[in-house]
Nucleic acid binder design. Structure first.
Length: 267
DNA sequence: ATGGTAGCATAGCTA
């Protein structure tokens, strides 16, 4: 059995519901994890996605900000959601697929952290650091172990040198500062998470999932960052996988500034 | 060094 899993920071699921449908129709993932749905619970366009073959939906939303969801073709056995930093921000939802040995799949949205990379001066950055620290203990030993885990989402950190268009110029830019990248690497190593994207793309090659809206011409400047990730439990490390970063959607009219990451996994 | 764009609590916040 193959499992095709996609993650996409959609930056408003209601505004871009048609783009989600277009993506589902063409890429046909079994599971789509969404972040930044910006959609209060109850207003999620579930009917639209159910009609496309994704009737199994888990969502956690709030007005205006954040919001995560998971659309699935396969039945869901369990839904879980975690609170971070004592806030009720909608930044995480997870499903366990119904069936023996099938995994938990997580959709996670890490705080962006504001502009100034100093936790003493910028509360949003302090929140991001606290969030990453909490992630470390949660992902290290706080996960339910009744099934393997697949972690996806917008982690808002580009950990490796070639996860950004200019390592040197971004070392003091939030998303690529050592205080963040060292934490993300430590989280990954804490449970031997498998960075499946980088297993397919050499560390010396550029790899991005996000391009700013503020660029005059995002294609020409190509100043991207790899903010979105899919990590597999070490349980799956030796499995055959395939990867696609769907850069094409960034060029769709009124699209998200993030693009989908799609991983196919032999279960 | 600065400002650039986008979305939603439509006005100032977040990204």
């Amino acid at each position: 059995m193959q499992l095709k899993i996609a993650t996409w920071n959609i930056n408003s699921v209601r505004l871009r519901a048609d783009l989600v449908c277009r993506f589902l129709d063409r890429w046909q993932p079994d599971i789509l994890c969404l972040q930044e749905t910006k959609c209060p619970e109850g207003l999620f366009p579930s009917v639209l996605f159910a009609a496309r073959g994704y009737p199994h939906i888990a969502e956690r939303g709030q007005a205006g900000y954040h919001g995560t969801a998971i659309l699935s073709r396969l039945p869901i056995a369990e839904i879980a959601s975690r609170q971070f930093c004592g806030k009720d921000d909608a930044r995480h939802i997870a499903i366990r697929l119904a069936g023996d040995g099938l995994p938990w799949v997580h959709s996670l949205y890490v705080p962006a952290g504001g502009d100034l990379p100093d936790p003493a001066l910028n509360p949003k950055f302090a929140h991001k650091i606290a969030f990453l620290d909490e992630m470390r203990s949660w992902l290290g030993n706080g996960l339910q172990d009744n099934a393997p885990h697949i972690l996806t989402g917008d982690f808002n950190v580009a950990p490796l040198e070639h996860d950004v268009w200019s390592h040197r110029q971004l070392l003091k830019v939030v998303s690529h500062t050592p205080i963040e990248t060292e934490r993300l690497v430590a989280i990954m190593e804490g449970r031997s998470w498998h960075d499946v994207m980088r297993a397919h793309v050499p560390h010396t090659d550029k790899l991005y999932t996000w391009w700013s809206y503020r660029a005059r011409d995002w294609v020409a400047s190509d100043r991207g960052r790899r903010l979105d990730h899919i990590w597999l439990d070490s349980f799956y490390r030796r499995r055959r996988t395939a990867l696609e970063v769907v850069r094409e959607t960034r060029g769709w009219e009124r699209s998200s500034d993030h693009v989908p990451v799609v991983v196919t996994l032999d279960l």
